[in-house]
């Protein structure tokens, strides 16, 4: 049975969702990992594949080649800026975005950026384009901060997304997470998305829940994953139950199968 809930965004909804999260979330064992690995291995792939919640939501349909743009750069810069403004409270969020942007440019100038990276993209931008990137990142960081500032429990900006390499299956899973809220001994993840949630937003959240649990060394799932769509003023959540973890894993394997079929169709 799914635990997907749908709420209108308000100051108290987020706190209520965190407070009412399950006290004992499920945990994935080594058997679960082995079983998942076997299922992914059964879906043969010549190339290394990367799967994430977005692909699950798109039912494995190919989206074209990723390219950096102000819209795709905003999350990386915005999250980093909020993290920085938490540790350096004298910085405004706009200043923090500027510092992060400058850091990326310095990384490129120092020769540490590889082609195709964010730093590489930013270095190729004109000042007007950099201004737009900065404006988009400021929007992101402000919306994330407004959500975080209303929380009663301690929170931090996630240091990175969750990554899990499925053993011997040429597959990397990537789970998005923006805020990690700690309540007692359990974790609640908050994921922010622009636009409005579609019909497959729930499977997307479950995929993030499963990948996060897989990336945890002890396999302990987050008590709840909250998906926040500030532009639509909507909050969705799924609980860290075994049923949701299984559903998330199933969706990921199905996505791998769909993508494999597409590759075969293209090859034919």
């Amino acid at each position: 049975m799914t635990t997907l809930t749908h709420r209108r965004l308000s100051q108290h909804v987020m706190n209520r969702l965190i407070a009412e999260s399950p006290e004992e979330p499920a945990a994935l064992t080594d058997d679960h990992r082995r079983s998942l690995s076997a299922r992914f291995r059964a879906v043969t792939s010549v190339q290394h594949r990367r799967l994430d919640a977005w692909m699950v939501e798109r039912a494995g349909r190919a989206d074209g080649v990723f390219r950096w743009s102000p819209a795709t750069a905003r999350r990386v810069l915005g999250n980093a800026a909020l993290r920085r403004s938490v540790f350096e409270p004298q910085l405004t969020r706009v200043d923090a975005v500027d510092v992060e942007l400058t850091d990326q440019l310095l990384r490129h100038n120092a020769g540490y950026a590889r082609p195709g990276s964010l730093a590489w993209y930013l270095a190729s931008c004109s000042s007007a384009e950099l201004g737009l990137v900065s404006a988009e990142a400021t929007n992101w960081t402000t919306q994330l901060a407004e959500a975080a500032e209303c929380l009663c429990d301690p929170w931090q900006v996630a240091t990175s997304d969750a990554y899990y390499d499925v053993a011997r299956a040429r597959t990397t899973l990537r789970g998005r997470r923006d805020l990690v809220v700690t309540r007692d001994s359990r974790r609640v993840l908050v994921r922010v998305r622009m636009g409005a949630p579609g019909k497959s937003a729930g499977p997307g959240l479950r995929a993030d829940l499963t990948i996060d649990a897989l990336a945890e060394p002890n396999g302990l799932a987050a008590a709840r994953v909250i998906g926040l769509w500030p532009e639509a003023g909507v909050v969705l959540s799924v609980d860290g139950t075994m049923a949701d973890l299984r559903a998330g894993a199933r969706d990921l394997v199905r996505t791998a199968v769909t993508r494999q079929r597409q590759h075969l169709h293209l090859a034919a």
């Binding site: 743009s69 102000p70 819209a71 000042s127 007007a128 900065s134």
Partner: peptide
Amino acid sequence: CAGVTVDDVCREASLAWCAE
């Protein structure tokens, strides 16, 4: 609002528009 110094508004706004 992002603090960019705009000299040639039409050209720079066009660049930003195309990037977006």
